[in-house]
């Protein structure tokens, strides 16, 4: 059996700012993949556009760096054509929650078996500092000089859409994040992993220090049960002095792919092309 090690995933030199939260996410992802022993050729990372979208270039695996907001539908198509691939979609908060919001909601509803990692730095960083859907209410940027409107709550929205797996990680706690990534990949169905990611260049409010003071781990809460939807909703709206990280909501429900007869046996990509097979349909037209 192949034993995967970190070197197998070594990619290009990242062009991120020194100290960027993305470095922690990249380390955690590689660690999770090595722990799960997933070889690079069995993995596909589909990314959108933004600093997060560059992540697969800094690894070594099958890669489709797609358009802004469109990582999810590309990932879904790739997964349905070859269910044997482990498919991860990656993007930032602008990419996933703004430009790609519609895809995100419906992917959760249908429950495709992919993992979606959102590097949530509450800012548009690639375009140098504009408000994002998760920027704090009143956040002042070049495009929102009078303050950003109220932010979206990705976790609450995901629970409402009945996503199969909803978790929040923190780029400043690599080991904990790696654990969450492993569980997200292993969970059958759509897994949303929202990752608090400090932006050292454009977000001087939600810093490493700001987050570190606030985050606490849900698995350390004795009475917390991620299968309890009401409890999960309550946790998802907690944001302030205390910010929960860990698995917020988890549910077993049928994966979209499993509802299609065409996908019951072998992957689509291995199905033969048989032009003669339509002969029986032609008789219906005579």
């Amino acid at each position: 059996m192949t034993v995967v090690n970190l070197q197998d995933y070594a990619g290009m030199q990242p062009a991120w700012c020194p100290g960027c939260g993305n470095f922690g996410i990249l380390s955690a992802l590689k660690k999770a993949l090595v722990d799960l022993n997933i070889p690079p050729y069995n993995l596909l990372i589909v990314s959108g556009i933004g600093q997060a979208g560059k992540l697969p270039h800094y690894m070594k695996c099958n890669t489709f760096n797609s358009l802004h907001g469109r990582a999810i539908p590309v990932a879904i198509g790739a997964k349905m054509a070859n269910q044997e691939l482990t498919v991860i979609a990656v993007g930032g908060d602008g990419d996933g929650y703004a430009e790609g919001g519609n895809h995100w909601i419906h992917a959760m509803r249908r429950n495709h078996d992919i993992t979606y990692m959102v590097h949530n730095n509450q800012i548009y960083a690639l375009t140098k500092g504009q408000a994002s859907p998760t920027s704090d209410t009143g956040f002042i940027t070049g495009t929102t000089p009078e303050g950003s409107p109220p932010q979206i709550n990705p976790l609450a929205l995901a629970i409402a859409a009945d996503a199969a797996f909803v978790a929040r990680g923190f780029a400043g706690d690599v080991d904990h994040l790696a654990g969450l990534i492993k569980q997200a990949i292993s969970h059958k169905g759509f897994a949303l992993l929202d990752i608090l990611q400090p932006c050292v260049s454009f977000n001087h409010i939600n810093t490493y220090e700001w987050y570190s003071k606030r985050v606490y781990k849900l698995e350390e809460e004795k009475k917390y049960n991620p299968a309890d939807k009401t409890m999960a909703f309550n946790k998802s709206i907690e944001w302030g002095d205390r910010i929960p990280i860990g698995i917020v909501y988890s549910k077993e429900r049928p994966v979209f792919e499993s509802t299609l007869k065409a996908l019951r046996n072998i992957p689509l990509v291995k199905q033969p092309l048989e032009p003669g097979k339509i002969q029986k349909l032609l008789t219906d037209f005579s």
């Binding site: 596909l44 589909v46 489709f64 797609s66 358009l67 469109r70 539908p73 590309v74 990932a75 879904i76 198509g77 790739a78 997964k79 349905m80 054509a81 070859n82 691939l85 895809h103 689509l268 990509v269």
Partner: peptide, 9 residues
């Protein structure tokens, strides 16, 4: 985009 993803696979 789904069609493009499927074709990529």
């Amino acid at each position: 985009h789904m069609a493009i993803g499927a074709a990529y696979s």
